[in-house]
């Protein structure tokens, strides 16, 4: 199988790339929602993510990628005690996935042939400590969405059915993509995503040509192309690693906290998740840029992506929510 298209070679789409990098620095931000037309590089960016992220250390054979042996769930039959390094999991949740495949189910093979009650882990187990990618998230069936909400909230997957009682950690970053013209996403699910970005096809002809040129080079001269972009990818990876280190040392002045609150009040966003995400994302950005003190510039850069999907939907307002956020940001922050 070919390695995915390099992350750094994606032309433009800065908002999407920034959002993805920030969640890689601080998974606590809580996921990215990418809305846009077909053929704008949404899937490409997410699949590139796996190759970009630094590998994680996990117990060999552990179905939930536990970092230490004592963290492995008791139902998992782990043979070795070895700690291996594996790529950060980026798990695809396909649209038609059944509940069994998502949360895991009784291992039918073993139940029927050997008469043993065993648990077959699902996609949520595999996504632990990594990413869960849902393409066309707005077309996902409602009961799967409810399930994901519940697990994303608690960080734990509990299976109580078919005579099984199993729980395992399921902490992952949700990455959803979709086309808003094909159906809306429920506000409850929208709010669970930390960041949301809208992507468009580039309108600049030069940029479009560059996209085609790189894609063509990727397909025809794969080895050369990957080599050319490897150092750029490594640079981003190192910056992410450095940012993770410095994240806790970022100083947050009192005035910035006040700014966050004022922004959210002015926008009328529900709950306090808006403020929290705003703050975490701004910190991640500061860390990524090598700054030590949080400033209004950081807030400005990420306000649209962390707040635009939290506004009360106003059916009579024609302007997009991103414009509303931009307007309020200028009012509040000057």
């Amino acid at each position: 199988m070919k390695s995915p298209f390099p992350f750094s070679a994606i032309v433009g789409q800065t908002a999407m790339k920034q959002a993805i990098i920030l969640t890689a620095i601080d998974p606590g931000i809580g996921g990215v929602l990418v809305f846009g037309d077909r053929g704008t590089g949404k899937s490409t960016a997410v699949r590139a993510l796996a190759a970009l992220l630094p590998p994680i250390k996990a117990v060999a054979g552990c179905p939930v990628n536990s970092p230490r042996l004592e963290d492995c769930p008791d139902w998992a039959e782990i043979g070795s005690k070895e700690i291996v390094s594996r790529p950060t999991p980026v798990i695809d949740l396909p649209l038609g996935a059944t509940e069994d495949r998502v949360v895991g189910a009784l291992d039918i093979e073993r139940a029927l042939t050997r008469g043993e009650k065993a648990f077959e882990p699902g996609l949520l187990a595999r996504a632990n400590r990594g990413y869960l990618y849902i393409d066309e998230v707005n077309l996902l069936e409602d009961h799967i969405v409810d399930l994901l909400l519940d697990v994303a909230q608690s960080g734990e997957n509990v299976v109580e059915r078919e005579g099984l009682s199993i729980r395992h950690p399921a902490r992952f970053v949700l990455v959803g993509s979709g086309n808003p013209e094909e159906g809306e996403l429920r506000p409850q699910l929208l709010d669970r995503f930390g960041l949301s970005v809208e992507v468009r096809s580039p309108t600049d002809i030069e940029e479009r040509i560059e996209v085609i040129r790189r894609r063509d080079a990727f397909e025809t001269d794969n080895a050369g192309f990957m080599k050319r972009w490897r150092s750029a990818d490594t640079k981003i990876r190192n910056r992410i690693l450095a940012a993770r280190e410095s994240l806790s040392a970022i100083v947050t002045p009192e005035s910035i906290l006040r700014d966050c609150a004022e922004l959210c009040i002015a926008l009328g966003s529900d709950g306090l998740r808006g403020e929290l995400t705003l703050l975490r994302t701004a910190r991640a950005l500061a860390a990524y840029e090598g700054d030590t003190v949080l400033t209004r510039d950081h807030l400005r850069a990420i306000a649209a992506s962390s707040l635009s999907h939290r506004l009360r939907r106003d059916p009579l307002d024609e302007a997009g929510s991103a414009t509303r956020v931009a307007r309020v940001v200028t009012e509040v922050l000057g």
């Binding site: 704008t40 096809s201 479009r208």
Partner: peptide, 21 residues
């Protein structure tokens, strides 16, 4: 060649970049 293909796609209002590829 790439320029020509992209330009024509734009003139027919084809937004997706998969088309020129």
């Amino acid at each position: 060649e790439i320029t020509a293909l992209v330009a024509i796609a734009l003139r027919f209002g084809i937004d997706s970049l998969r088309a020129p590829i």
